[in-house]
Design a binder for these strands. Structure first.
Lengths: 207, 207
DNA sequence: CGCTACCTTGACGCGAATCAAGCGGCGTGG
DNA sequence: CCACGCCGCTTGATTCGCGTCAAGGTAGCG
């Protein structure tokens, strides 16, 4: 396959940047192994988590396709192996492969829908609701470890806070409230879900 | 042109729905004349404004392309004329027209970027900052009337509040604060910008 | 072993939501 | 043509969620 000749794999350690906001894309990235976060920094420099990526996910296609600078940065959440596919090769591929183009469109349309839903949630839900929602979201994305209750992701309080759009202290507080209520267990950077039902309830219901 | 045979125009009065959230799309809509808002309702039924549309804008392509239900509704902000293009015709067109497909991708990628930026702003900015930002945004989208200061849109306080993600009362208060500060003038549902510079300042700076 | 980075917990204050009351414009009907 | 009622807006009072500040605590790492 031609792809093999046009890709190159790189290792990124936790915290390393795969690409940087407001630089121009030269190609796109495919996560071979590992987990990453896509973040955007606000005017004050505080970072907001936009999306996560895991094995098999592709990064940076939106900016590559629109020809703009990256609006986000991608950072490795754990040591990861990421392939790079050059811009020209990819665009060539898209131009000659209608099916691929269609899939890209679907990908983008879904991303957009998710972003819009997140927007509505952020505007209308309380931090408590968003916290519950975020835990369920993490489970959805990363799944469980072999014990079937521990979410398969290491996430710092800082990161969790930036996911739900809240201050770090608030994230800490709410997570330990959830712990006190027997909804979750906390093991350092791991979260174990004890009561999914209650979590769903907390995420949706208002008052 | 074939298009003429496959489109039909309809008139919508202010407040009328062009399409409804969680129904399936049968085609897409092109705004001939008028203005619309794209809204999403949260769990509690409170509506969140996702986007605006004006003459020449196309609506509903994201759901049509991804094949999902509409995640939003579109509502006429003023009496509008909207064309309908059938699903099959459009998909056919896209399949045989690479340039169109490319443009769609760019459109989607840009929408996505905007949504992500809005997300970060919503999470990190105060309501005051978002209010200023929203006024500038409205100016950007709808432009001025012939007097060169009045933004060319009728928007209720309720709608403005749902644009900035705040309560109606808060929107009222902030707008009249801005009026007291000589930044804007308010004429019913119209906003006149008196001091763009101060508006930009209020939108960005924190502390 | 101590340093640093990150987390936890409490106290406090502010910003914004909610509640409540009154206003004003507008359409309707008498 | 005016009175009435409705709807959306304004403004004030009150409440409360959450951010910020501050003071330790803990764990990982050189």
């Amino acid at each position: 396959m031609k792809l093999a000749m046009n890709k190159s794999c790189n290792l990124f350690k936790r915290g390393q940047y795969i690409f940087h906001e407001s630089t121009y894309p030269h190609g796109l990235f495919c996560i071979n192994r590992g987990k990453i976060k896509v973040v955007q920094s606000g005017e004050t420099g505080k970072e907001q988590i936009i999306r996560f990526g895991k094995e098999g996910d592709v990064l940076g296609y939106e900016s590559l396709l629109s020809g703009e600078k990256y609006s986000c940065s991608a950072v490795a959440l754990e040591d990861s192996s990421v392939c790079f596919i050059s811009r020209s090769f990819f665009l060539d591929l898209v131009a000659h492969n209608t099916k691929l183009a269609t899939q890209l469109v679907i990908l983008l349309a879904n991303d957009l829908r998710k972003a819009e839903e997140k927007l509505t949630g952020l505007a209308q839900k309380t931090v408590r609701e968003r916290t519950a929602e975020a835990i369920l979201f993490l489970k959805e994305i990363f799944g469980y470890e072999t014990d079937n209750i521990t979410i398969n992701i290491n996430i710092s309080r800082e990161e969790f806070a930036s996911l739900i759009g809240a201050a770090r202290e608030t994230a800490t507080r709410l997570l330990s409230e959830f712990k006190d209520d027997g909804i979750v267990e906390l093991y350092g950077k791991k979260i174990r879900i004890l009561n999914t039902h209650k979590l769903i309830q907390t995420a949706n219901v208002r008052i």
